[in-house]
Design a protein around this nucleic acid. Structure first.
Lengths: 340, 340
DNA sequence: CTGAAAGCGCTTACAG
DNA sequence: CTGAAAGCGCTTACAG
């Protein structure tokens, strides 16, 4: 009797009086096993606490049971939620999650990911913005025949490889909300233009306003860097304008926190003098005072869906439309109608 | 000529006109290879972009090249920094990092980790508070002969398995600092008593004050839950006392943010009326206004050291004293001498 | 210092 | 529906 957790396919085969090939069939859910044989084997596996060795299986299969999570530099909360989501889907699947941050500013970064995928014979890879926006990376993965899912704010790839975050739509929602409160003089602090998400969030906001007949002139738009300091700078800029905006939409919460600082320094009260809406619903949002109205994206769901897509059977029917996930506005205490 | 990244030990052996055992010796840095043979083989490996297959190696070695990172529920920033640190040490080592969150409130959680370690034949495991504080888990890992490193605020294990965070010392430093500013009436918001870190941080603070002749009476100590809301509650409690404390030490930044909220609601200015010191130096610390004075711990260094310990040669001399890492106070804008 | 044989724990390809 | 043989890409144990 082998030690618990140490049994091999040979132990099971011997005890079940079948060949190891039959045990293998049970492991791999082959239909070509008589029901009673299958049951006998499954019982035995449970009794011995048997789990097939992923390395041996991987060696024979010529690929591993590892999913890679590849990202450049999102916020900590984003990464962690994504990991939790992916792990939700991988639980009890026999697959494990290997984290692989990278620096997409290095011109050999794709090579690093290729080597990673090749050497570990990854089953698949989840790509998060902004690396997910890189078509060259996607092509490199296709070339070496590694499955991948790209999480992005626009449909950049086949539906089978895409998870769409609908950030533009969320920008529209922020615009509609502020308009409905009665704001007419708005300010926008975007992220860097090289981030597709920034363009979508800000673009959606401007579009939403335009739909309701409010013009957002370019001098009320400030390009930030998704950082606290750039939020401060953006707010300094916008709050010095005349007429002063009564509401500011910042394309992430960190910049929104910067807006708080600039407003407080000027003695402006939030939301009395200025409404602020952020994006991300980071932990910060509820820890600021007043609590921040912001856009919540179901990041964990994204991670779960991405992992599920990678685990789907090889020839499962591909969706005709990219799967997507819908962010929504969370109203807290940083927004109200403009002062009269 | 095999495709790049697809060569095997057999290709190398054939092209070098040696046996694959000799190639294996080069891979494993055996000294039993003639220098010129070694060099010929190494050149060939580089030319073909050869990297040994970790699964095949693992199968033969009876253990994998995976390091597990096991944690319950620390903050996102902590997890991510720990991961970056561990990956710093693993880079180009052939080892990969597999993340494994768990729920230490479930009574079968140790079993889950055991199965994970056993099935993946992990090379080693990094344990973060609070799972690192669980002796039963450590024992379980020892029983199945899996290497582990425990990161904790007190030396719970052999030096070879410990990384000591010196949180008590940091608590003392916070006390000394506030005392030196002239504060005599202090308040303390601790974390939950079931967290060892909370006891050390708070205990160090009280001890530091006592050393300088300042008594911290129990009614000026509030047991929080490391959450924002508990920080608010703690501050509500402390600020209602008479005499009112002129400074509060919160055992993490999230609770310190809660103190901000409570103070602002009461119309107290920070740091004019109340000094606040936090712990963690989370992103929040610089995004609050005023920026928070807090304790910075080199989490990434911790992760790096932990991984290095796991990679150390099997019979490397163990340290006689646990390795440790020293946090330090970062003074920002939330602290100043008490009002006169 | 080097190598031929056997084996790690699985699966593939084939046969029945 | 089931199995014997060969192989995945490495290392161990042994021999020289």
């Amino acid at each position: 009797m082998p030690a618990p957790g140490k049994a091999t396919i040979n132990d099971i085969a011997r005890l079940a009086a079948v060949s190891k090939k039959t045990v293998s069939r049970v492991i791999n859910n082959s239909p070509l096993v008589r029901p009673d044989t299958r049951e006998k084997i499954q019982t035995l596996m449970k009794q011995l606490g048997y789990a097939p060795d992923p390395q041996a299986r991987g060696l024979a299969f010529r690929r591993s049971f590892l999913i890679g999570l590849v990202y450049d530099n999102p916020t900590a909360q984003y990464i962690v939620n994504m990991q939790y989501g992916a792990l939700d889907a991988l639980r009890d699947s026999g697959y494990e999650l290997v984290v692989h941050p990278c620096d997409s500013n290095r011109d050999d970064y794709i090579d690093g990911i290729r080597r990673f995928a090749l050497q570990q014979k990854l089953h698949g890879v989840i790509l998060i913005p902004r690396v997910s926006e890189d078509d060259q990376l996607a092509r490199a993965l296709r070339e070496i025949d590694v499955r991948y899912v790209r999480i992005a704010s626009i449909p950049l790839d086949d539906p089978a490889h895409m998870l769409h975050t609908q950030e533009r739509q969320a920008g529209v929602e922020a615009a509609n909300y502020l308009q409905s409160l009665g704001h007419r003089q708005l300010g926008l602090i975007t992220g860097p233009h090289r981030y597709r998400s920034s363009i979508e969030r800000g673009g959606g906001f401007a579009h939403g306003l335009a739909q309701r007949g409010i013009e957002l002139t370019p001098d009320y738009v400030f390009e930030g860097g998704y950082t606290f300091e750039s939020g401060v700078a953006g707010a300094e800029y916008l709050l010095a304008k005349s007429p002063r905006p009564t509401a500011i939409f910042a394309c992430n919460d960190e910049m929104a926190a910067g807006v708080y600082k600039a407003a407080m320094r000027r003695g402006l009260s939030i939301p009395g003098d200025l409404s602020v809406v952020g994006y991300d619903d980071s932990p910060l949002a509820t820890q600021l005072w007043p609590a921040l109205t912001t856009i919540h994206s179901p990041i964990r769901d994204l991670g779960r869906q991405a992992a599920q897509m990678l685990l789907a059977p090889e020839h499962a029917p591909a969706p005709t439309q990219p799967l997507s996930v819908t962010p929504h506005l969370v109203v807290r205490d940083s927004s109200q109608p403009p002062p009269v």
